[in-house]
Write a protein that binds this DNA or RNA. Structure first.
Lengths: 269, 269
DNA sequence: ACAAAAGTGTTCGGCTTACACCCATGT
DNA sequence: ACATGGGTGTAAGCCGAACACTTTTGT
């Protein structure tokens, strides 16, 4: 893989791949703020041999972009995403740095709350906290930063938040999630009022006690809270229900699990 | 082009194209609100033969996505865009409706203020006002709606607004542009205060008289107003200066003008 | 003087912020 | 009683909407 053949490769037709930034919300370690975790894949080829990279795979004919992203997720994490949204398409021919010219259609996804230590380790896959990422291959660091930025701008969407807190939750739990994603402290009293005033929540009637103090009211998102306030017919992310339909159209997805786990988007086998 | 070969085509590898939604700000017709205009291309092939569609062309190897979009623009309008931003990538295999499975990387662009009636007519290219569009091929109507939505959310960016009003302008002109893009009336007095309070404008010291009334102060955007307030290293649109560099890397662009004018993204020759 | 546009003031309500405070519960 | 978290109150400040108003200019 010398430098000599770079100029030849540069004229090849670009390959198309789908790359995913996958987020999971980690547990609350000893009273600290919770963190976002994401799985990375170790590269087994040049360029960037042995570096960590975002999971990805080639775009296969006959599959929608979302389904390709879904399959990538399933094969690298064995988890089913609860939310999936297109992020950006990168295609600068310089970005593959000696590899084949590559167009990467990037997605970001949520897989819910995960106890990272309990995930069964997989070959060449590891999870990292968002504030302790290693050096990444290609321009993947930029892509991760962009994905985090997007997630932070989606905290007003029930589709997204529901995936991070579960179906029912106390306002304090919701608050903790917001602080974890925003990466900054948020006044609890004001958060409470603002959130209730949004009209997106309803009480379940039940209560939950966390420590041994007064139990807190449990809430859920109203069924009609997903209606987009702004533009209706615009490209949106997919929530768990929509994704299950995508998954249903992928009957053999689990059998192929692992087949892509050593691949990353920006190189072909 | 019968139905019989659809299933065969479905398994082909997807083609990649670049599609652009191009906006120009039309003149103020007899005191009415100004409108956005956009060029469309008449299809010369099935499917959707003779329908209007967004201009586009295949993604060529060795070119960045932006440069491909830039070339598409130059060849269909003979105008140089002053702003260019990626919109979304569409890739559902169903969308080509009998054509070859197609991935379209969509961009939107501004080409400044245009007197549509003075544009020299081109074969198979025509300009339409945004509120009087014809039926569009494929899912192009959705793409246009999304592009308009995005433009409306970019009115706080000097890069974008500068392209619509020119280098210097009165507050009333700026106000008229905002109303045209937002598609709704905006209180002039409040607009004036809000805009000045943003700190992005500075007076040129000169004045301009439009009718025969009191002349208005001329403003320009401050040189440092382009600094993104939010995320710094995130994918952004390209303004005129950055695009000129892209164009410089495209020496033969004008010679090829017209070569793509009859193409649209979702079909290959 | 009048018309038309430039430009200013003022009031109102909604929403965010900061922070003090009371309430419920188990040890 | 007291600690801990659940939940409420309140005052200050910012910002946009609405709209009345003054100023400047040419005819």
């Amino acid at each position: 893989m010398g430098i000599g053949n770079v100029s030849e490769r540069r004229d090849e037709a670009p390959r198309v791949g789908v790359t995913s930034v996958i987020f999971a919300l980690g547990p609350a370690d000893d009273g600290e703020r919770r963190r976002l975790w994401l799985p990375l894949v170790r590269r087994v080829r040049e360029p960037f041999l042995d570096a960590w990279a975002l999971p990805g795979g080639p775009l296969k004919a006959g599959r929608s972009l979302e389904r390709s992203a879904y399959e990538t997720l399933a094969s690298t994490t064995d988890l089913h995403p609860g939310y999936l949204e297109q992020l950006y398409t990168f295609g600068d021919p310089e970005r593959s740095r000696g590899g084949v010219p590559m167009v990467s259609i990037c997605y970001w996804a949520l897989v819910g709350q995960v106890d990272v230590s309990s995930i069964e380790p997989r070959h060449n896959v590891a999870w990292f906290a968002d504030d302790a990422l290693p050096e990444l291959a290609f321009d993947h660091r930029r892509i991760v930063d962009y994905a985090i930025w997007r997630l932070r701008h989606r905290l007003d969407m029930p589709k997204v938040v529901r995936e991070l807190v579960g179906a029912t939750f106390t306002l304090r739990e919701l608050h903790a999630v917001s602080e974890a994603v925003e990466g900054r402290p948020i006044d609890l009293a004001n958060f409470r009022r603002r959130t209730l005033a949004s009209g997106m929540l309803e009480e379940t009637g039940e209560r939950r006690r966390v420590g041994r103090q007064r139990p807190a009211a449990l809430y859920r998102f109203r069924a009609d809270a997903d209606a987009p306030a702004d533009g209706g017919a615009l490209p949106q992310g997919f929530d768990a229900g929509e994704l299950s339909r995508i998954a249903d159209a992928t009957p053999a997805a689990h059998e192929h699990a692992g087949a892509l786990s050593a691949l990353t988007t920006d190189v072909r086998p």
